[in-house]
Amino acid sequence: MLAANDSAATARAARKRVSPGGAIQHIALAAITLIFLVPMLWVLSASIDARASFAIQWPHLTAGNFQGLFTGNVLLHPLWNSLVLSVGTTALATVAGSAAAYVLSRHRSWYTRGYLFIILFATGLPVQLLMIPAYTLFIQLNVLDSVPATILFLSATSLPFAIWLLKNFIDNIPLELDEAAQVDGAGAMTRLRVIILPLAAPGIAVAAMFTFLNAWGQFVIPYILLQSPDKLPAAVSIYQYMAAQGRVQYGPLAAFTLVFSLPVLLLYAGLSRFLTGAFNFGSGVKG
């Protein structure tokens, strides 16, 4: 609370002494923003253009590109597959991650330090590196092209970050609450249910949203581990439409990528207010 007042005061003071280089500052900012914006504008115009090509142009307005998505199963089915993969992954990773984070935060044992060290190490190690070995492992276990096995794999890849995030949230719940509940006769499982889960709910929501975002946009993992056309998620089917160069219809594809990106943008907008401190590396972690 004090920190919030402080920073508000600083911001007010900062606004008073606007630098003389303000014009240069605004021009530079506008230029960079425009460069970021121009590539995106094409998707927007192509999605409502009846005669879309690769070059940006004034669209021949149509809603047909979007309407086409909702007739027939060609594009709705991949979206459904994405939803199944993402929701399954989110549920599994959040439940397993919360349980593990609770123990790692509240129970100190000989393995705690090593476990956390491996978790942090794994958050920095991108999993797409392991895709080829994972592919041979899936062949050996005879689970290639299995949706449940792919969900298990996606969950495992999200777990390190989820556990790390949740552990930090649970660390901030006072230990006294656990102790008071214990005096009242609550066991470890009861305390998890009655104290930790309700108080860590915002943290669990953040972890769940992150996991969902990752799973929804994931391309490499389903591309390699799934094969049947009717099991492929939207990210893979977009790629396949793109790869079939000659037959690509840019308008409908642009409309589809917009629909596909919409949940990500909405979730991120919802998530952003939780994120103010999440990017504060270096100053917060180092003691």
Binding site: F36, M40, V43, G217, F219, M242, A254, T257, V264, L265
Partner: peptide, 17 residues
Amino acid sequence: IAWVIPEIVAGFIWLAF
């Protein structure tokens, strides 16, 4: 937005651009 959209969409955007 350029960062959070799925990579496959970013790929499509730059392929067109």
